[in-house]
Nucleic acid binder design. Sequence first.
DNA 1: GCCGTTAGCTAACGGCGTTCACAATAGTAC
DNA 2: GTACTATTGTGAACGCCGTTAGCTAACGGC
Lengths: 244, 244
Amino acid sequence: MAQPASRRERARADTLRDIRSAARAVLVDRGVDGLALRAIAREVGLTAPALYRYFASREDLVEQVVADLYGELCEVMEAARDAVDPRAPGTRLLVTARAFRTWATTHPAEFGLLFGSAADGVVPESPGGEGPAAVAGRRFGGVFATLFAEIHLRRPFPVPADDDLDPGYRDQLRAWCAELPVELPLGVMSVFLSCWVRLYGLVCMEVFGHLRFALTDAAPLFEAEMRALGKRLGIVDEWVPPRA
Amino acid sequence: MAQPASRRERARADTLRDIRSAARAVLVDRGVDGLALRAIAREVGLTAPALYRYFASREDLVEQVVADLYGELCEVMEAARDAVDPRAPGTRLLVTARAFRTWATTHPAEFGLLFGSAADGVVPESPGGEGPAAVAGRRFGGVFATLFAEIHLRRPFPVPADDDLDPGYRDQLRAWCAELPVELPLGVMSVFLSCWVRLYGLVCMEVFGHLRFALTDAAPLFEAEMRALGKRLGIVDEWVPPRA
DNA sequence: GCCGTTAGCTAACGGCGTTCACAATAGTAC
DNA sequence: GTACTATTGTGAACGCCGTTAGCTAACGGC
């Protein structure tokens, strides 16, 4: 862990950090569309071509920022999770989901970069590796998946039998399961997917304004959905009020 | 309905249609990001500044395209709906939802323009009027809302009592209800929102690739969710197999 | 035939991502 | 201390973008 950093290397690392935080700053007050290379360079006090000494392209730079943001989001969620007794995984899921929504609504620009429709390519595809954004994205997904698995481990909720699943669906779930560190019943994974769609879809719709046609504040809807999810997972008794 | 169209007016109307269909073509094979004014002009055989004789700005042109696409999507959905006996509103909802998903997956670029995160401002806000895209968007929302209301009218499904709803939530639902043509119990609207999030959120996630981490084909998940929704709405007996 | 309106053009501005050639600096070998 | 090289910055330029301004031709009504 030493730092044999030749002055130059330290300077380079510093500039790298500066650029990434400048990019973050530009993202926040210029929005996703305003995240221009020249704007970032201006913020750091450099010219645009100089950034090419540090990143192969704008896309590359953005990917690093995405990875940073995933990391930050994960830490927020994990902190919320770890503040709750591990023996109450239902409560853990609840507070983690709330932390996710809170971060999303308080960091709309960052959330848009991570989860917006423009992130088509950035969002991790099924195959492994790729860029740092992909691994960071998997870490994010793993947080919820793990909580989910723990809930089912401690207090199994009803899941469809393998035979009740559509054959094609079953095969896909099996393929996905094969990539995961632990093996889970396919029914559990199908329930996870269903719950994930409800949670993630709701937060996306709120942040991207797709609920403004009806609501000005989606918090009560979110809480109602969380309660419905809790009921589905048999963890209503672990419910706790928000902003604890 | 006569056409006192002075040759000029007819020519103008023709060019207008040409531009919009060219925009559509560019959208399809260049994607949302490739929907550039100059590209559209090239497709029509004009130069970019010429388009300003027809549209105030690129944003304006895009809004017209959005309105066109909403119209097309609505017609597809309404056609699917109207092919089913009105006395089976549950089946109508099912086939309409399937038509929605099918259009979305077979027209990803168009869907991205209508429902992507970049459509922040385009997606209709709660206040009335505004642009043609907003009214087209309301027509779209109305299709599902109406089906939903008809289902509840014909065969009421269980909904939360007003007193069971969070007071702040209740007020928002009331405000929303006031804008609607018909008056509905607040509990029905809350159930509609919940179902809407599941349906719409799922389709968005599929098209925008947010399910690729687990699935290559989201059709079975969609069908499973539709079945769950049907159960929630007490219309399982109206279920029909896909691609009828 | 005249004249205002309309629809098209070219040229230009500032911005974008990106590449290139060049200058200055930092580190290294003798 | 002096040469040499690698690194990090620069400005100029290319081709794209949305948009504006000024010009030219054709159309339509009198």
